[in-house]
Design a protein around this nucleic acid. Structure first.
Length: 736
RNA sequence: GCCAGCUUAGCUCAGCGGUAGAGCAACGGUUUUGUAAACCGUUGGUCGUGGGUUCAAUUCCCACAGCUGGCUCCA
């Protein structure tokens, strides 16, 4: 029998016969190891303990101490959950059941939907399976045989998956059996269910089959599992703690922002304290921009529809925008008409009614009340407009021709859009004056508020909203200026993240999805832009980046900076985007050294991204305890008793004169209560004064972050200390 | 938009087929205090909105809205 060499982690080499299983290697090393082993790592691939070894390999046994083992355990836990569900909900069809960073899920379709109240009995059933500690057994079948097997088990989705992908890419497919439960699965698995020390079902949610919104919606059951109950408890506690950092909770508690159902969902109302934080962030970035040669501009909140027709925003994102505002109210009617016709829902009677309305309008009548002129303010123009529509529609021969008449008429109507992006406006500013190559780069910056009609199910807190302000800028450059400017933009984003203590982020170079029609412009320009971005990120030292296929904007690729919120969701903050397309669409030009017109390149960039989202993430990053330079209330003066109120007021006035954001508490509460309240409200420093201080001309400084008091201080020394902390933008926030 | 759950005082939450309760907050008083909660009292709710069942609905049913988690989307 041929022998294999296994190189173990300690560097030793072990000779074993081909076909030996990791379990046997473990047993030969020691009984304890054999018992503790969960899986094996063979040339970097994690495999079952029962998988036969076929070639020389770097070999390691994984126990519950290894990070990789947890993943194996959780995948097996997903099977155990699925098995329990199959027992309790006969007829359940299984889809995919992978692991996540913190647990696992299984997508299923059950004839009777599963609800949260079913969790206890599912968990009970899972506990039985764990207790029985049956092994997970792997076996392989040819594609047709495997398809037959899983089809016999009435697993329609698994059959579909074999037909759509596995069958094409694989010769054989693997299954795992555990007792009565058989699942199509790549593995690997733990040796037996008894290895699962603790588990819990966490949530239930909808998910589309193969992540496709056009396909069947399944139920996704989330859970987590650990080797040890203590680890599960620690994890659950950590989730509880994280929830306390939630910016929606802290935003309310600390009176930073509110969202009113009355004002509109997805609209952030910045309360005075939140407005202070935002204002300081704006000043901070504005100072940096001025240093870097940016030119501040202002543009309005709405723009003519034609602007966005040219830029492409209106056609590309119409569904995600607030509806356009038309002067001619008949457009709404025609839009409804168009939609019905397009979806083939228009009945003959409806069509007749629409035409009748248009006829009435074209004659300047209110269709509901022919005695009234309608509408008076634009009736002259509308007469002409609507009459043309009325005549042309009747001449249209087929559905396509009718659609065209309606569409052409609508696009001739003057309308405005709440601006979804600032770039078209900035482009108009660029176009307003001629430019020489000597003037470039031109950098136009604005805190531009934009509005997007995000799907209702997406809205939440400050991270996904319908109106937000970008720290936006658009740069117009010569092709040679692109690379150095991109580098400088990345450095600016990194400066922002570093200054605000956001140290955990990932960088994504977002490129096109090949073969998709979502993008404008020639492929050569895209290739050039994508290559440029990649070559730039490569030269930034220590940048941890990856490619995001299909994440590009419709006009160009981008570099996105992504952070996680308190419950682990990822959000894009800063972005740097390269654009060869809008300069074309808007026919931008500058005069080159050859005295001929040249086309500039554009960079769109926003280091914060959205001030709403950034602030939300920042609240969570600091757990509401902002560094001194950002704290809405920096110092609170507390008096021991009402006897020292006058002295307290004197101190307060001095601090205010020095430029600090200071508040006071002169109530007849005990000092302990005042300290507690200031602490709960996350005021970084408290100055406590009593009669002794009055006599000695001193103050007592309490540092909330260090949770320490220092008595008998001179106010001037305290001021110097706080001033220094503000000037350096020091981050010393507590995590509570 | 889709799936599931939730919605009771400003906040956190209890409650129930017979027209509501706690703690904190707010307000008034007592207290004059040395570093994370003094004491007493008072106010506060068309129980998310609309409809239905019922002698009677905050409670049961339906619809809608909003919120939460996830999916899809995200210029």
């Amino acid at each position: 029998m041929p022998m294999l060499s296994l190189k173990l982690p300690d560097g030793s080499v072990r000779q074993v016969p081909a076909g030996t299983r990791p379990r046997e290697v473990a047993e030969s090393i020691g009984k304890r190891l054999a018992q503790a082993a969960v899986a094996a790592k063979v040339n970097g691939e994690i495999v079952d303990l029962d998988r036969e070894l076929k070639e020389d390999a770097e070999f390691a046994l994984l126990t519950d101490k290894d990070k990789d083992s947890l993943d194996v355990l959780r995948h097996s836990s997903a099977h155990i959950m699925a098995r329990a569900v199959m027992r309790l909900f006969p007829g359940t069809e299984l889809a995919f059941g992978p692991t996540t960073d913190t647990g696992f899920y299984y997508d299923i379709h059950s004839p009777t939907p599963i609800r949260e109240e079913d969790f206890p009995r599912i968990e009970e059933e899972m506990a039985k399976i764990v207790k029985a500690a049956e092994p997970f057994e792997r076996f392989e079948k040819s594609v047709p045989e495997g398809r037959q097997l899983i089809g016999d088990l009435k697993q329609r989705l698994k059959v579909e998956h074999i037909d759509e992908s596995l069958g094409q890419s694989h010769e054989t497919i693997s299954f795992y059996r555990q007792g009565e439960f058989i699942d199509l699965c790549r593995g690997p698995h733990i040796p037996h269910a008894g290895k699962v020390g603790a588990f819990k079902l966490l949530a239930i949610a909808g998910a589309y089959w193969k992540n496709d919104a056009k396909r069947q919606q399944l139920q996704r059951l989330y859970g987590t599992a650990f080797f040890d109950k203590k680890e599960l408890d620690a994890y659950l506690k950590q989730i509880e703690e994280a929830k306390k950092r939630d910016h929606r909770v802290l935003g309310r508690q600390l009176k930073l922002f509110t969202i009113s159902q009355v004002a509109g969902q997805g609209m952030i109302l910045w309360m005075p304290k939140g407005a202070i934080v935002r204002g300081l962030l704006e000043s901070f970035i504005k100072d940096e921009l001025v240093k870097r040669g940016y030119l501040p501009v202002y543009t309005p909140h709405i723009g003519n529809l034609n602007l966005y027709r040219t830029s492409g925003h209106f056609p590309y994102y119409q569904d995600a925008q607030f509806p356009p505002m038309y002067f001619n109210p008949t457009v709404q009617t025609v839009d409804t008409w168009y939609t019905l016709l397009e979806k083939k829902l228009l009945t003959d009677e409806q069509e007749k009614a629409f035409l009748e309305t248009i006829r009435a309008v074209s004659e300047g009548k209110n269709p509901d009340d022919p005695d009234q002129e309608f509408p008076r303010f634009t009736v002259g123009e509308m007469k002409l407009d609507a009459r043309a529509l009325w005549l042309e529609y009747q001449e249209a021969k087929d559905r396509d021709a009718k659609l065209k008449v309606l569409k052409d008429w609508m696009s001739g109507q003057e309308g405005y859009l709440l601006k979804p992006m600032n770039c078209p406006h900035h482009i108009q500013i660029f176009k307003a004056t001629p430019h020489s190559y000597r003037d470039l780069p031109i950098r136009l910056a604005e805190f531009g508020t934009v509005y997007r009609f995000e799907q209702s199910g997406e809205l939440g807190g400050m991270t996904r909203v319908r109106g937000f302000t970008q720290d936006d800028a658009h740069l117009f450059l010569t092709p040679e200026q692109v690379e150095p400017q991109l580098r400088s933009e990345i450095e600016l984003v990194l400066l922002v993240l570093k200054t605000l203590g956001l140290n955990e982020y990932r960088v994504r170079v977002s490129v096109r999805e090949p073969g998709s029609d979502k993008y404008v412009g020639e492929p050569e320009l895209w290739e050039k832009a994508e290559a440029t971005l990649k070559s730039v990120v490569e030269t930034v030292p220590g940048l941890n980046w990856s490619i995001g296929v299909g994440e590009a904007a419709f006009y160009g690729p981008k570099i996105d900076f992504i952070v996680k919120d308190c419950i682990g969701r990822e959000w894009q903050l800063g972005t740097v985007q390269l654009d060869y397309n809008l300069p074309r669409r808007f026919e931008l030009e500058y005069t080159g050294p050859d005295n001929k017109p040249h086309r500039p390149v554009m960079i769109h960039r926003a280091p914060f991204g959205s001030l709403e989202r950034f602030t939300g993430i920042l609240i969570e990053n600091f757990a509401g305890s902002f560094p001194l330079w950002l704290a809405p209330e920096q110092v609170r003066v507390l008096t021991i008793s009402e006897k020292s109120e006058a002295y307290g007021r004197e101190i307060e006035a001095k601090l205010r004169a020095e430029g600090f954001r200071v508040a006071s508490d002169y109530r007849s509460e005990k000092i302990g209560a005042k300290v507690r309240e200031a602490s709960v409200e996350k005021v970084p420093y408290m100055i406590v004064v009593g009669e002794k201080d009055l006599a000695a001309g001193t103050v007592s400084l309490r540092d909330r972050v260090a949770d320490k008091e220092t008595r008998d201080q001179k106010l001037d020394d305290v001021i110097a200390r706080l001033r220094e902390e503000v000037a350096t933008k020091a981050i010393r926030s507590a995590t509570t």
